[in-house]
Simulated assay, not measured.
Amino acid sequence: MDIRKLDRTAVLETVRVLGQASARDWDRPTPCAEWTLRELVAHMAGQHHGFAAAATGGGTDLADWQPSELGDDPLATYCATAETVLHAFARPGVLSAEFLLPEISATRRFPASLAIGFHFLDYVVHGWDVARALGVPLDLDEETVRAAESIAQRVPDDEGRTSPGAPFRPALPARPDGSALDLVLTSLGRSPEWSATASH
């Protein structure tokens, strides 16, 4: 399947899940230990902005990738950035482009399909982060999750995962009875058993 369609599915699911947040939910803890829900969504919105810039030939300035200011209506702000990145990825010819992703490399150019794959995996995982913070289900079809699993298995599990600010932690043991989504999570250092209550 076109990586853009997979990515769109994941991003729109984050929009759907976040639509269930109430005003009192934005300070909830998330599986990203250093971030509340508001801080996580600010990061997610900022990444949408950066990837959209990269898809249109920009994105070289790290300022493009900084967390977004969510303002008084964080959901509306997030939805606007989601729409921006999906529109950028849908542009004709984008799959023949190369993306500059300065958070990964200051000089390397990434084929569009690989770069969009990075974005896709992030939003499957961040969708789970948001859903778990809110205590609601994440609804992704099997094809989408299996595609995320394939990408997750190729993420190096090396010393870089222990660096400050690393997007993923060292892999956890896979659960023998776990789902495909569980495998995505454990391979990237997240515990499928995480709960907001247990994090306090």
Rank of each mutant, 00 (worst) to 15 (best):
L75H: 14
A76Y: 14
A76E: 13
Y78W: 11
Y78K: 12
C79T: 11
A80Y: 15
T81A: 12
T81N: 09
T81H: 11
T81W: 07
A82Y: 09
T84L: 15
T84I: 13
T84C: 15
V85K: 10
V85C: 11
V85S: 13
V85D: 09
H87C: 09
A88L: 02
A90R: 05
R91D: 03
V94C: 15
V94G: 14
V94P: 13
L95F: 08
L95T: 05
L95M: 08
L95W: 06
L95E: 07
S96V: 10
A97P: 11
E98R: 11
F99A: 10
F99V: 11
L100H: 14
L101K: 06
L101P: 11
E103N: 12
E103C: 11
E103S: 10
I104A: 10
I104N: 07
A106R: 02
A106N: 01
A106G: 03
T107I: 02
R108I: 02
R108M: 05
F110A: 01
F110V: 08
A112Y: 03
S113L: 07
S113N: 07
L114W: 12
A115F: 06
G117D: 00
F118R: 09
F118A: 08
H119W: 03
F120P: 04
L121N: 02
D122A: 02
D122N: 05
D122R: 00
V124R: 03
V124C: 06
V125S: 01
H126Q: 05
H126C: 03
H126A: 05
G127W: 02
G127R: 02
G127M: 02
W128E: 02
D129V: 03
D129K: 04
A131Y: 15
R132G: 07
R132L: 07
A133R: 15
L134C: 11
L134T: 10
G135Y: 09
V136L: 07
P137Y: 15
L138T: 12
L138C: 12
D139S: 04
L140N: 04
L140S: 04
D141Q: 09
E142I: 07
T144N: 07
V145R: 05
A148L: 09
E149M: 13
E149I: 14
S150C: 14
S150D: 12
S150I: 10
A152V: 11
A152C: 10
Q153S: 14
Q153M: 15
D157C: 04
D158C: 04
E159Y: 00
E159V: 00
G160L: 00
T162L: 04
T162E: 03
S163G: 03
G165I: 00
G165C: 02
G165P: 02
A166Q: 00
P167R: 00
F168Y: 07
F168S: 09
R169I: 01
R169M: 08
A171P: 14
A171D: 09
A171N: 10
L172M: 06
A174M: 13
R175K: 13
R175G: 06
P176D: 06
S179D: 08
A180R: 12
A180E: 13
L181C: 10
L181M: 12
D182Y: 07
D182E: 10
L183V: 14
L183G: 15
V184W: 07
L185Q: 02
